[in-house]
Design a protein around this nucleic acid. Structure first.
Lengths: 229, 229
DNA sequence: CCATTAGATGAAGGAAGCTTCAGGTTGGGA
DNA sequence: TCCCAACCTGAAGCTTCCTTCATCTAATGG
């Protein structure tokens, strides 16, 4: 059986001696490297094991199957990002909305860019069924943190905090993806970050004013207008 | 040879009779369906052919290999989205920036939501090496269209048009992804769209004002602040 | 109505990949 | 030092998949 779609997610064995912990670490690192060098399609358990300097058998001692390996790598990365965001949200409790925006964007991008290659490699994993589930769960966790932070803001929000948080998340995700997939992420980093901060602030500022004034000031484009010649 | 990473991208044979065109169409449709029902991992050429109601041989008459099949499906979808955006951009030449924002967001989301399932299915393809290339190329094409539109705006932009266009694209991509991966895209559609319009307008409005006023009005968070406990 | 070309078929070759397991090695406690 | 559990190894079984090609059917045009 080559594919056991559902199976125990967790390592089948927890490392107790030092060398086995090192093996697990090496395997997870190798997973990312292979993902980057060979792509998701050509990632094989044998190749990962070879790159990690262990044998396939060792790999299977800690991960029940290939898919669990990929999930573990994704989970680890997402956990880092989310907990960075939670930290920021905790720190910014009671600030102004604009300060929050700045801190959130800065913190998020910094976490993502701490290891850009890992982020890029894992995009290929997160678009698979299981990966999507993990992403969704992590997204909800981050959402709760942001909403909680927004609730403590000095200025008053005139829109639903959940929606605002969702927009901020989606925007940050979109921009960071563009950044990571650009030719030279490191180079464009500061510029895009500053612009994203600018955007987030503009958005939150607008969210403190009376929305009605800004919602319909110019003729709405008809839904079918885009299709017309 | 199971994998011929690089190969002619195009159909090896162009359909001349009606029935073959129907086959190609059926195969492409089936590709999406299989992608959705089975996932990228379990998508096999045989399965696609079966679902399309043709034999594998027929599939291989029009697509040199599996990867070309997936690329073709992705390309077709992206072409639709991009040309919808180009149309919008052409139509909005000379409008105000805020009108442009509304039209662009509306047009983009409408195109994406015309066939949400296809969009969702193809996320799995676009994160592969070849898919990423196609995405990048299409992104650049859309970028040019947006920049051209912005250049004709009645109001004056105080930031680089390319950056503004990039931010709009990244934001739209992020929000549409969130939308498509939500539990019920159709349900959240209008609400998220309206909020995205609101955000885009707030951003562009801010881009017409003197940026300096908004760039540093509150204490900047230090880069390492996020990591501190 | 026949010849020629376009289109369709699906069994089979051959290459990989996933996962197991029987047997070897290492390390720590008694 | 000795023993046992933890750990590691990698060849091989079994499955699945991609792709080809010899053969058959349908359409087109003369």
């Amino acid at each position: 059986m080559q594919k056991r779609s559902q199976s125990t997610l967790e390592p089948r064995k927890s490392p107790v001696q030092a060398r086995s912990a090192a093996s697990v670490e090496a395997v997870l690192k190798a997973t990312i490297q292979v993902l980057l060098k060979a792509g998701r399609e050509r990632l094989t358990t044998t190749r990962v094991a070879a790159r990690a300097g262990v044998s396939v058998g060792t790999l299977y001692q800690y991960f029940p199957n290939k898919s669990a390996l990929l999930r573990a790598a994704l989970q680890r990365h997402m956990d880092e990002i989310v907990s960075a965001m939670e930290t920021v949200c905790r720190e910014q409790a009671g600030s102004s909305l604009e300060t929050m925006a700045t801190a959130l964007v800065t913190g998020f991008l910094e976490a993502k860019m701490r290891d850009p290659k890992t982020s890029v490699a894992l995009y290929a994993v997160s678009s698979d069924v299981d990966g999507a589930r993990i992403s969704r769960e992590m997204g909800m966790k981050a959402n709760r943190a942001i909403v909680a932070m927004l609730a403590t803001a000095k200025d008053e929000l005139t829109s639903e905090p959940q929606m605002v948080a969702a927009m901020l998340q989606a925007t940050m995700a979109g921009v960071s993806r563009r950044l990571l997939e650009s030719a030279s992420p490191e180079e464009d980093y500061e510029k895009l970050r500053d612009e994203l901060v600018f955007l987030a602030r503009a958005y939150l500022r607008a969210c403190t004013k009376d929305r009605a004034r800004y919602t319909q000031p110019s003729p709405h484009v008809s839904a079918s207008g885009a299709a017309a010649s």
